[in-house]
């Protein structure tokens, strides 16, 4: 039985998911904590991958399985799961890590059923116990509670982690062994599901996760007009706007990708400014790592004040125009 740590490398249109590289970095850390470590192994699936293999080899992958074929250009769950299942049955890895991206969130649990093992979802921390086994820390009840998840009797021990949760990976020079995967067996797989198109657009403005200042709005912002003020102030400050679930449901925000919370984005800006936010556990768990948290709410009893450094009791409809004026926004 080996102690190899595998990482699924997700690529969409020749862009490697940040989550995958973060997981490679995490694999290096986990390996350093093991008494009898195995190899760090990456699995990459897609088409025309030679440049991507170069990238993967710079982040500590000692062995890289490459399934490179035209019919793997677009993500097809049955093909991708069949390749991972095939390799797992062949090599019996100790741990398999996968990004909790849109693709990984489907692929990970699929593979867990096919190879008959457990998977811990959306981990916020990964640890190694005294027996070199994986301890996956997962949030529950909106993130209020963290629980250790173990997978004592099945292999591989699988875990998924959302993008941006783990630290940025460091470059590590290793001699990577490249192993092409023979995918002839895929001719036996006849998927009923056909990917017929893909559309990606460049995100506008500063990504929420990278912004130094994030202005979050909740239901208390009240209307689209005041939401526009949040957007303008954030743009002026070089920051980004986040929202809560109720503000998203009202249709004020730019969309689901701007929601901050356990089931949305996790942010850690230098300054978090919250307007009209009640302070649900879900939202707080997505912004708790912000360096400075300032919240404005007209209700002195608002829950959010307990999770803030400063709670400003005031009417945001009065304060936002003043901020606009001060910052020279017309």
């Amino acid at each position: 039985m080996n102690k190899d740590i595998w990482v699924f490398i997700e690529q969409v249109q020749s862009n490697i998911s940040g989550a995958s590289l973060e997981l490679l970095g995490e694999a290096v850390r986990l390996k350093s904590k093991m008494k009898n470590p195995g190899k760090i192994v990456a699995v990459i699936i897609g088409s025309q991958l030679s440049e991507l293999i170069q990238v993967v080899s710079m982040f500590g992958a000692e062995k890289i399985y490459v399934a490179d074929h035209r019919k793997l250009r677009l993500y097809q769950p049955d093909y991708y799961a069949a390749i991972l299942t095939h390799l797992i049955h062949q090599e019996d890895p100790h741990i398999l890590l996968i990004g909790a991206t849109y693709i990984g969130s489907q692929l990970g649990p699929m593979v867990a059923i096919r190879v008959d093992t457990g998977i811990a979802a959306h981990c916020v921390e990964l640890k190694i116990d005294d027996n070199d086994n994986l301890v996956a820390v997962v949030p529950a009840f909106g993130g209020k509670l963290l629980g250790d998840i173990l997978c004592p009797n099945y292999r591989p021990q699988m875990a998924s982690v959302k993008p941006g949760i783990l630290e940025k990976p460091e470059r590590i020079e290793v001699q990577s062994q490249i192993v092409p995967v023979d995918i002839n067996f895929l001719s036996l797989v006849e998927p009923k599901l056909k990917p017929v198109g893909i559309c990606c657009h460049e995100p506008k403005g500063v990504p929420l996760e990278q912004a130094e200042v994030v202005i979050c709005g909740g239901w208390g912002v009240g209307d689209a007009e005041h939401w526009q003020m949040l957007e303008k102030i954030a743009a002026k400050l070089g920051g980004a706007v986040g929202c809560t679930r109720p503000a998203l449901d009202e249709g004020w925000s730019q969309g689901e990708h701007t929601m901050v919370g356990t089931s949305g984005k996790s942010i850690r800006p230098n300054v978090y400014l919250g307007f009209g936010i009640s302070g649900s556990t879900h939202h707080v768990c997505g912004m708790k790592d912000s360096k400075l948290i300032i919240s404005v709410n007209k209700d002195e009893e608002a829950e959010i004040f307990n999770f803030s450094d400063f709670g400003l009791v005031g009417d945001i409809k009065e304060i936002l125009p003043l901020l606009m004026q001060s910052l020279g926004i017309s």
Binding site: L150, K288, N306, F310, G311, L312, V313, G314
Partner: peptide, 29 residues
């Protein structure tokens, strides 16, 4: 297949200093 180990409650609270004042003072803050 997966088994729960230790549970931890997260303490998310911060000092939560309440600031009151005129709208101008709050905006300046």
């Amino acid at each position: 297949p997966t088994q729960a180990g230790n549970l931890h409650l997260l303490d998310l609270s911060r000092k939560g200093k309440i600031i009151k004042g005129s709208k101008e003072e709050l905006a300046q803050f």
